[in-house]
Amino acid sequence: MNLAIHTQNLGRIYKIRGGKKTEPKELEALRDVDLEIPRGELFGLLGPNGAGKTTLIKILTTLLAPTSGRAWVTGFDVTKDSHKVRARINMVSGGEASGYGLLTVRENLWMFSQFYGIPSKEANRRIKQLMEVVGLGDRLNTKSSDLSTGLRQKMNIVRGFMTNPEVLFLDEPTLGLDVGASRDVRRFIRQWIDEDHFRTLLLTTHYMVEADELCDRVAIINEGRVLACDTPANLKRRLQQDAIFKMEVSPLNGLNVDSFEGLPGVRKAIHVPKDGTAELDLILEKDDALGGVVNMMTSNDVHILNLHKREPTLEDVFVDLVGRSMEEVEAGEE
């Protein structure tokens, strides 16, 4: 099989040194990751902060050695044949400030193109073309220190695409971008993949919508483990049996998530307090479990302001797999 990315029992443990006296602590950032990504796929890694997404990308881009297991990119082992891997890949991280502020956009991109052996003339042609595609055709001669965050990220994206990699890694490509710029970047990513079936792209994100709408397949990752890996549609299909309701209610008057989850048929409740009201997401085994929830509310003087049933999202899939929402996981970390 012609796999662009292949990992087997991949794991990474970081040693964290404390003070001089304390023993170094170990942190397992990745554990037994098995992925098979064929060429032509736009693959997404979805997970909360600290899930291990960047760690996985670093291993696949030869920047970090795994502590167990193996990984191949374009058929080459990332540790033994790192040189061959490097010639065939590129990587862009969200929010990176690479390059030199004193150089213009064109000069910065040209410099990086040279590190991939692209002849100057060809490099300049590609830079010009790609900059126009991302809507920055008139900014070639702007000093890169003068670019806004969004424009800068577009320049970084061009840096990644310009070498025409066989596999491109994007670590949170839309981090910090506004809605419009994010949409541009996503559209460009999709177009790049669709243009050529030899290309493969792996991106990480913690935006559910991004994973859902953009990616061919998504791996949900938490605490270093891949919990599920499938197309967004298949992932959501797991919850097809469930009934998912979104409610807007008055403040909960002492009730909490646990009180609802104690009710029969309620698999999960997520509570988001708002100004003067509250939002409640409920994953129920069946529609009729709603009756118990409503009863409990009315007997505690909680008013229902709005209620509707909705389709499952990847967010719900995450909750189903992890038992907590991504926000809860991230909040629990701090």
Binding site: A87, E166, D196, F198
Partner: peptide, 22 residues
């Protein structure tokens, strides 16, 4: 298209990356 791309994009990097010119 894809074959043409493979050749044209990786030719420089892959073949010349140990060379003096690169």
């Amino acid at each position: 298209k894809s074959e043409q791309w493979t050749v044209d994009s990786n030719q420089w990097a892959v073949e010349k990356n140990s060379g003096l010119k690169f």
